[in-house]
C-alpha cells in the first residue's frame, strides 16, 4: 500500500467541506430561488451605503491596528529585555485573557461602559467605545508575534551598535526596529484582517446602533425573521474576500521586501 492512500479521506473531506462550501458564495450571489439572475448582485454592488460601511470598517481596522501596535511594541520590548524566567511568567499574564471566551469579555465591557464608566462612554462616543474594545480584544494578538521576534533578536548586535558609538535611541531606530519588522508584519496581519470582519464588538458595544461591514453580512444572513437574503450576503462576502486578498498580498509584499533586504545585508 502506497503511503499517499492515507491522505485520501482528507482529500474527500476537503472537497466536500472546503471547496464546495466556497463555491456556494458564488452560486448564491447570482441565484435567487434557484434561478440565475444578476439583478441582486448588481444592485448590491451599486449600493453606496454598503461601500461607505466597508470604508468605515477599513478605517476602524486601521485605527485598531495602529493603536495596538503602539501599545504592544513597548510591552514586547520591555518583556524581551527582562530575565527569561520573569518574562515568561509575565507574558503568560498577557496571554491568559486570549484564552477566555472573547464574547464574554466583550459582554463585560458592555456592562462596564454602561454602569461603571458611563463618563468614559460619553467621552469616547459610540465609535470610540467600539474602537477601545476592539483594541482590547486584539492587543494580545499584536503582543505575541512582536514578543517572539524581539526575544529572538541577537543581543550581541545591540552591543556592537553601542560599541560603534550609537546611543540607545539610534540603536533602537537603526537596529532593533528594522530587525523586528517581520514581527510587526505578522502582528498587523493578525489584527487588521480579523478587525475588518469583526461584528461581535459593534453589535454588543453599539447595541445595534453602530454597524460595521461584518454586521452588514451578519444581518444579510441571520435576520430575526427566518431566512436572510443570501444573494445580498454572498455579494457582500465576495467584496470582503477580494479586500482581504488585496490586503494579504500587500502585506506579503512588505514581508518579502524585508526578507530580501535581510539577505542582501
Amino acid at each position: 500500500m502506497k503511503r499517499r492512500v492515507f491522505a485520501y479521506p482528507y482529500v474527500v473531506w476537503m472537497i466536500l467541506f472546503i471547496v464546495i462550501p466556497m463555491l456556494f458564495i458564488f452560486y448564491y450571489a447570482v441565484n435567487v430561488n434557484g434561478q440565475f439572475t444578476l439583478t441582486k448582485f448588481i444592485a448590491t454592488l451599486k449600493d453606496a451605503g454598503k461601500w461607505k460601511v466597508l470604508w468605515a470598517s477599513v478605517v476602524m481596522a486601521f485605527k485598531t491596528t495602529l493603536i495596538c501596535l503602539l501599545l504592544a511594541y513597548p510591552i514586547a520590548y520591555i518583556l524581551s529585555n527582562m530575565k527569561k524566567s520573569v518574562a515568561g511568567f509575565i507574558s503568560v499574564l498577557f496571554f491568559v485573557p486570549m484564552w477566555m471566551n472573547f464574547v464574554l469579555r466583550t459582554y463585560a465591557w458592555q456592562a462596564i461602559l454602561e454602569y461603571l464608566l458611563p463618563d468614559l462612554k460619553k467621552f469616547l462616543g459610540l465609535e470610540g467605545s467600539v474602537l477601545m474594545v476592539l483594541v482590547y480584544d486584539f492587543l494580545p494578538f499584536m503582543i505575541m508575534p512582536l514578543y517572539n521576534t524581539l526575544s529572538k533578536l541577537d543581543k550581541s548586535l545591540l552591543e556592537a551598535s553601542r560599541d560603534l558609538g550609537a546611543n540607545s535611541a539610534v540603536t533602537f531606530f537603526r537596529v532593533v526596529l528594522p530587525l523586528s519588522v517581520p514581527g510587526i508584519v505578522s502582528g498587523i496581519t493578525m489584527v487588521f484582517i480579523p478587525a475588518i470582519t469583526a461584528f461581535t464588538v459593534p453589535a454588543l458595544i453599539g447595541n445595534g446602533m453602530y454597524h460595521l461591514y461584518g454586521n452588514e453580512i451578519e444581518l444579510a444572513f441571520k435576520t430575526l425573521s427566518g431566512q436572510g437574503d443570501y444573494a445580498v450576503g454572498s455579494t457582500l462576502s465576495i467584496i470582503l474576500l477580494i479586500s482581504v486578498l488585496v490586503s494579504t498580498l500587500i502585506m506579503n509584499h512588505f514581508d518579502k521586501d524585508q526578507q530580501q533586504g535581510g539577505q542582501l545585508w
Partner: peptide, 20 residues
C-alpha cells in the same frame, strides 16, 4: 487549498458552511 480556511476570515468560513 488547505490554507484557505486559515486565511479566510471566520465570517466567510461561517457563512459558507451555513449555505452548504
Amino acid at each position: 487549498v488547505s490554507e484557505l480556511p486559515m486565511v479566510n476570515p471566520d465570517l466567510v468560513t461561517g457563512i459558507t458552511f451555513m449555505m452548504l
